[in-house]
Amino acid sequence: MLRVTLNSIMFCAIASSPLIAQTIAQSGAGSGIIATSGFDSLAQSPGIVSNPLSQPTLTPGALVLLELEGRFSQAVAEGGGKAFGSWFAEDGVTLNNGKPAILGRTAIAAQAQWDPKTYQLTWTPQGAQMGPSNDMGFTWGHYEGHSKDKNGEPVVISGRYFTIWKKLPNGTWKVALDASAEEPPPTKECCTLPKP
């Protein structure tokens, strides 16, 4: 009985913490973390969010960001470019290898026109950090894009990504910046001189 009472007291103390309560409230289904028409009710993909038991240093803020990233990835897997563009803030920015920056959600949505039946973009977050004010943070990880060339042969691109998230005044979270870079060449390949 004492153990049950102590556990109940500990849960109430933890849940009453403003940061924990905010994180729990924001993590729940339909909480308004994401305000993207048609995509906000998607369940989080299994395996996307890191297990806090295996990474005890993850903060509640990092968990919120990893959940956002998982929902973003799931929405894009199902909705393609249209879903991708919908996750950005009005003043969002994308930076991609060898291409000029794209500024603003409207321009990003205009560029992101791929169909998930012909191009599949997937990614896995590998880390996250929330800022001290709990209204901005970032995630990073590995991405892959799968398509086919004009002969029907598979084409795979891969690399690293970095996403900056910001909390809007209405409490929803949006992507402020998404940047990606292709994987570097295998070790020593970049620095080897051609043989005569």
Score class of each variant (00 low, 15 high):
82 K>Q: 14
188 K>N: 14
176 A>Q: 11
95 L>E: 01
30 G>E: 01
41 S>Y: 10
31 S>I: 01
185 P>H: 07
25 A>G: 07
157 I>T: 10
51 N>R: 15
40 D>I: 01
35 A>K: 08
65 L>Y: 05
173 W>G: 02
169 P>R: 02
61 G>A: 07
28 G>F: 15
57 T>S: 15
176 A>E: 11
141 G>V: 05
114 W>T: 00
170 N>P: 01
164 I>N: 02
149 D>L: 10
118 T>K: 14
195 K>Y: 15
87 W>S: 11
38 G>K: 01
186 P>T: 03
135 D>K: 13
164 I>A: 04
50 S>V: 10
7 N>W: 15
193 L>A: 08
153 E>L: 13
187 T>P: 12
68 L>G: 08
85 G>F: 06
185 P>F: 06
123 W>V: 00
192 T>N: 05
112 A>E: 05
23 T>H: 06
53 L>H: 15
48 I>Q: 10
46 P>E: 09
57 T>I: 11
116 P>F: 00
110 A>H: 00
100 P>S: 07
48 I>P: 01
177 L>F: 08
148 K>M: 11
159 G>R: 05
91 D>N: 12
92 G>A: 01
69 E>R: 03
191 C>N: 10
68 L>A: 08
194 P>R: 07
33 I>T: 11
32 G>W: 01
34 I>Q: 04
71 R>H: 08
66 L>M: 13
49 V>G: 13
160 R>Q: 08
61 G>T: 09
37 S>V: 02
42 L>Q: 00
10 M>T: 14
29 A>Y: 14
153 E>D: 10
22 Q>N: 14
94 T>D: 03
108 I>Q: 07
4 V>H: 14
62 A>G: 11
88 F>P: 04
132 P>D: 11
192 T>L: 05
186 P>A: 06
161 Y>G: 03
96 N>V: 00
108 I>N: 04
185 P>D: 05
102 I>V: 02
80 G>C: 06
88 F>S: 06
178 D>H: 10
105 R>N: 04
89 A>S: 14
175 V>R: 09
91 D>F: 07
173 W>V: 00
57 T>K: 13
25 A>F: 07
131 G>T: 02
